[in-house]
Computed example of a mutant assay.
Amino acid sequence: MDDARKPQAPLKGRGAASHVAGRYQKAVTTGADDGWGSVYADEAGLPPLRTQVREERARTVISRNDSPDVGFSQSVNPYRGCEHGCVYCFARPSHAYLDLSPGLDFETKLFAKTNAVERLQAELAKPGYRCAPIALGINTDAYQPIERRYRITRGLLELLAACHHPVSFVTKGVLIERDLDLLAAMARDRLVSVYVSVTSLDNHLSARMEPRAAAPHTRLRLIRALHQAGVPVGALVAPVIPAITDHELEHILEAARGAGAQSAGYVMLRLPHELKTVWREWLELHYPDRAAHVMSLLQQMRGGKDYDSAFGTRMRGQGPVADLIAKRFEVAYRRLGFSRLPALDTSRFTPPRPPSPQGELF
């Protein structure tokens, strides 16, 4: 991207700085500076982008994977796109399948699967269904702000609780506290576990990097609330970003452990597809003095590339920098007494009644 087309300032309340084109986009619109400085330089002064939500009817809601380095085999995403606006989100490129930008569109043009509960009920009721823990909200946070209005996650959780079906969450949304009544009851039967994502303890950095997510201290309070309610809870330090957040690794683990986290994990920054451009724009706007150094360290962990999608190394990277971070995490993990969260119980599952075209008449 030439200098005339580069975003000149961050957009208040948003993680991405521009409408980065999706890889399947047939027509791309770009701005051209007319000499009045009106294309990108003044964007920060324009009215804020509004979040748009489109309701959609899903044909199926359970997504399955056999990736050896992912800790679940099936997931359900009640929404597409995420208003939290985390600039580093690995799910951003999924918006390209909708012919939308993985940049600003991902956090401003959202989709709510209003029939998700109905579809999940039908899929769980199939004779051939085999129970395995469902990760609820992986490609998008199940407890992002629009859940307050749509309550799709709540409905899915009520269905899973009624069926005694195990479920797990990774979230940075404090709205999960609303559902502590269900979560606490499910926890007593080993049917739920939660990982709270904590990227940084620095409020200023968090506000720039994940602008509509809960503040770091609020996430620590969430860990404490889940722990006190008896819900198995861990902390996920994700992503770890060299020369930006990696120095906080031990501090985050100590704070999470003090709040009641029983387990912990970490993931190195991943930059698949268009996320490379989204991230580079953000880096140049917020850390121009060290942008080249950050990218150099990332490339050292990815075989000289911005990203390597190979199973086994994509989550942690490889090489001296990656090995050092892995060792630091291992030492802190042992010192702080972390352990694995208890395995979820699949033996209690009771299939729901299949939906009847005659409703509940009989």
Rank of each mutant, 00 (worst) to 15 (best):
M301K: 00
R80G: 13
P320D: 03
Q262V: 04
P355K: 11
L49K: 12
A261P: 13
V20M: 13
E43G: 01
L298Q: 08
G103T: 08
R335C: 04
V117I: 15
V87C: 15
L191F: 04
M301Q: 03
H273E: 09
R188S: 13
V28G: 04
Q300S: 15
M268C: 12
S197A: 07
P145S: 10
P211N: 12
L344N: 01
A310H: 13
A238F: 02
Y129M: 09
L226T: 00
T30Y: 09
R316T: 15
A225R: 15
F111H: 14
G312R: 08
G155Q: 10
Q52H: 15
D202F: 03
G155N: 03
I138P: 00
V53T: 05
D181S: 09
D141T: 01
L341P: 01
E330G: 11
Y40M: 13
M315P: 02
A326T: 15
Q144T: 10
T346Q: 15
L249C: 10
T171G: 12
A132D: 03
K172S: 06
G137Q: 09
F72R: 05
P10E: 11
K113I: 01
R208M: 14
A255G: 07
V194T: 11
D202L: 08
R212V: 01
L11R: 14
E107G: 07
L269P: 01
R188A: 15
L336N: 02
T277L: 05
A214Y: 15
G45A: 15
G155M: 05
H95F: 14
E248W: 09
V170H: 00
E250F: 00
R154S: 14
D141I: 04
L11S: 06
